[in-house]
């Protein structure tokens, strides 16, 4: 499946958002995820089915003004 993760193209075997995070070595409870511009809650990642062409954003706390 072809996905765009944080702006970069990826081809992955993962079918759920949780599997994708594990496959790309993302871990930690400080991450926030969105698929196709909508928030996917941490609790829903395991059941969230990805589709070809999905755009995923994985964000974490950063300095801000």
């Amino acid at each position: 499946m072809k996905l765009t993760v944080n702006g970069e193209a990826h081809e992955v075997a993962a079918t759920t958002l949780a599997e994708l995070l594990a496959a790309l070595d993302y871990e930690g409870d400080w991450l926030a995820t969105a698929v196709n511009s909508d928030l996917v809650h941490k609790a829903n990642r395991a059941e969230f089915q990805l589709s070809d062409g999905d755009r995923i954003e994985i964000l974490s706390p950063m300095q801000g003004g």
Binding site: V5, N6, G7, L24, D25, Y26, G28, W30, L31, A32, E57, I58, L59, S60, P61, M62, Q63, G64, G65
Partner: peptide, 22 residues
């Protein structure tokens, strides 16, 4: 204090370090 959210690198822990400091 104000903070933000930005893209995390695969395997990255930058966000965690900043968050724990804050």
């Amino acid at each position: 204090v104000t903070v933000s959210l930005r893209r995390e690198m695969a395997g990255g822990r930058a966000g965690e370090q900043f968050w724990s400091l804050i």
